[in-house]
Design a protein around this nucleic acid. Structure first.
Length: 573
RNA sequence: GCGCCUGUAGCUCAAUUGGAUAGAGCAACAGCCUUCUAAGCUGUAGGCUGCAGGUUCGAGCCCUGCCAGGCGCGCCA
């Protein structure tokens, strides 16, 4: 319907602008007004034209209305305010869409195969394999997973990918921490050094490794040899723990990518050579860092990547002093690898603490591939964890961080997911452990789920009252007369239901899955409001049938929206 | 010092990528359950959209400068 209206306006415009061939043609965009008396759709097209045509927006709108040929469903259109064209549709035309919703079912709002379908690589979480996921990771996980769902819903092909940082010094630290715990479990007295990972999970991994490895043999090895021997098992132990944490909030990945593999296969080195051949690499000395005490700064010549040529403020090192590759070098190789795997688009979901990293990775990709295939980086701001309003100090080193798992076990997956989804990623998130535990109206997820459960209760009731089962569960809806749905609350609900496909499309375009969460909250609110003023099951069989159709549609759309967010829809609460 | 993000009701957040009278929830106050689930609904109150300029038919949104908070800033990942 929206498209038909836009087309009608577009044609009217072309007729009008025939006399002004030079005039730029602004896009015709309709939106649904906030206020009911502004009609079902509104166009602001006359306003931007005012300047070009040197006539008032009202005059232009009037000329448009003179020549436009509306589709059948339009009741009337008028000019309002500073030049809006408000369009009102015939009531039955809007309401008949309810049948489409029921017939489409879980497909309603989705696009099976988009014209511009892309093969998308979506990398998210990528928590280091040195410990369990904490709450901050959880936000990125939930956002990334919902975004994948949104993109798939509008017809893209999405691969969920996890980048395992299983290389570098941290792995040595991990292996050493595990070894210390293994010694401890064998009754040795150990000194637990400052830098090692102290968490309880290390003890569990140590216990597992003692079953797999011969302790005596390990103790005879040199430190390096021992690290070599147990690090992969320690990583695997952590990763299986992380996978369980993810499963607890209903997230599974399609692909796990190992950083180690990039180094061992020589791809990092090859990439550096390629950059050298491209002439964007040189040996140089970086200035001391700003804003931080530089106690031990010594100028050192390093292999540098000229990222400043691509918008960065300082060149970035590819190799450490000892000649080994930096994390940055590996990350370029990683993104290049994604490109070579044939993805049309790469999306990275990162924590805010990686914000300074965006420019340099994009710079590197710009240097490597001259296409527009840049990674889109979604920076998810931090989660401020509080308990009864008091901040919880988080430190992985000190072992005082609160794990995602603890929170999920206390609060439930649905509440965690929904709370993480209701805010834009750009704003920091306050998450109070005590408040989240409460099963009261401070948890918006119950508000939406309650609307769904309520509808199910009404439908059960309707069945008891002898309403035809085909109407309640099946597709015997063709003959329902929807023109009886004339109450304000009914009209609002219908308009809201019709807005779902657009909401989904917009969420996908802007990579903003939170829009689906705010949408289902609005829909639930409109339903609750409807419920209190109107009875569904009544003597009036025609009205009952139409309202059953209406609330079934609401339930369907709530369910479709929540499934994108990964939140369940309980039949009873 | 520089870069990125944020600043909207007492609190937590929205506002259809510049549109019409800035909206929800919580907290406060006043009402609504012998009728389909009160985890709900209705109403009242609450705002110089951090501050000051600018751009235009029109600014919470865009530009400039301040103020405040968060994150980051060499061979960690």
């Amino acid at each position: 319907m929206k498209q038909a209206l836009e087309q009608a306006l577009q044609q009217a415009l072309e007729t009008l602008l025939a006399e002004h061939p030079d005039a730029p043609m602004p896009p015709v965009a309709l939106n649904r007004p906030k206020q009911k008396d502004h009609g079902d759709y509104a166009a602001n097209i006359a306003m931007p034209l005012a300047r070009v045509l040197k006539r008032s927006p009202q005059q232009i709108a009037a000329s448009i209305l003179d020549v436009v040929v509306w589709p059948e469903a339009v009741e009337h259109a008028d000019i309002a305010g500073p030049g809006f064209i408000n369009i009102r549709l015939k009531q039955a035309s809007e309401a008949s869409a309810l049948k489409t919703i029921i017939q489409s079912g879980v497909q309603y709002g989705r696009i099976a195969m988009a014209d511009d379908a892309e093969k998308v690589n979506l990398e998210f979480v990528s928590a280091n394999p040195t410990g369990p996921m904490h709450v901050g990771h959880g936000r990125g996980a939930v956002v990334g997973d919902a975004l994948a769902n949104v993109l798939m819903a509008v017809g893209h092909n999405v691969q969920r990918e996890y980048y395992i940082n299983d290389a570098g010094a941290q792995i040595g630290v991990l292996a050493n921490s595990v070894w210390l715990r293994m010694q401890e479990l064998q009754g040795e007295k150990i000194d637990f050094p400052e830098g090692a990972y102290p968490g309880e999970y290390i003890v569990q991994i140590a216990r597992e490794l003692l079953q797999k490895h011969d302790y005596k043999t390990l103790s005879l090895l040199s430190d390096d040899e021992r690290t070599q021997a147990i690090s992969q098992d320690a990583i695997d132990g952590n990763m299986s723990m992380i996978r369980e944490d993810l499963a607890a909030i209903g997230i599974a990945f399609d692909f796990f990518f190992s950083e180690q593999g990039l180094h061992s296969s020589g791809r990092v080195q090859t990439l550096i050579e390629q950059l050298r051949a491209d002439g964007v690499v040189y040996k140089g000395v970086l200035p001391p860092p700003k804003g931080k005490e530089v106690s031990d700064y010594t100028p050192v010549e390093q292999l540098l990547f000229r990222t400043t040529d691509f918008g960065d403020d300082v060149d970035r090192p590819l190799a450490k002093q000892d000649g080994s590759a930096t994390y940055f070098a590996a990350d370029i190789a990683y993104h290049f690898d994604k490109h070579q795997r044939g993805f049309d688009r790469m999306i990275d979901v990162w924590g805010a603490d990686h914000g300074g990293y965006v420019t340099r990775v994009q710079a590197a990709m710009k240097a490597l591939i001259q296409t527009e295939a840049q990674p889109d980086v979604i920076l998810v701001q931090m989660v401020n964890l509080t308990r009864d309003g008091k901040p919880v100090k988080m430190s992985k080193r000190a072992g005082t961080f609160v794990t995602l798992r603890e929170v999920v076990d206390e609060v439930g997956s649905d509440a965690v997911r929904f709370n993480f989804m209701t805010r834009r990623v750009e704003s920091q998130l306050d998450f109070d452990l005590e408040a989240a535990k409460k099963k009261n109206d401070e948890n918006p997820v119950y508000y939406v789920q309650y609307a769904y459960a309520r509808i199910q209760a009404i439908l059960r009731k309707a069945l008891d009252e002898g309403v035809d089962a085909g109407l309640i569960n099946g597709n015997d809806i063709e003959n329902i007369d929807v023109s009886v749905l004339t109450a304000d609350e009914e009209q609002r609900l219908i308009a809201q239901l019709l807005a779902y496909p657009d909401t989904l499309k917009k969420a996908a375009e802007r990579l903003e899955p939170y829009r689906v969460a705010t949408y289902v909250m609005r829909l639930a609110a409109d339903f609750h409001s409807f419920y209190h003023k109107n009875r569904v099951v009544s003597e009036d069989t025609a009205l009952t049938a139409a309202r059953v159709l209406l609330i079934r549609s609401v339930a369907q759309v709530i369910s479709n929206g929540l499934s994108i967010l990964g939140v369940s829809t309980p039949e009873r609460m």
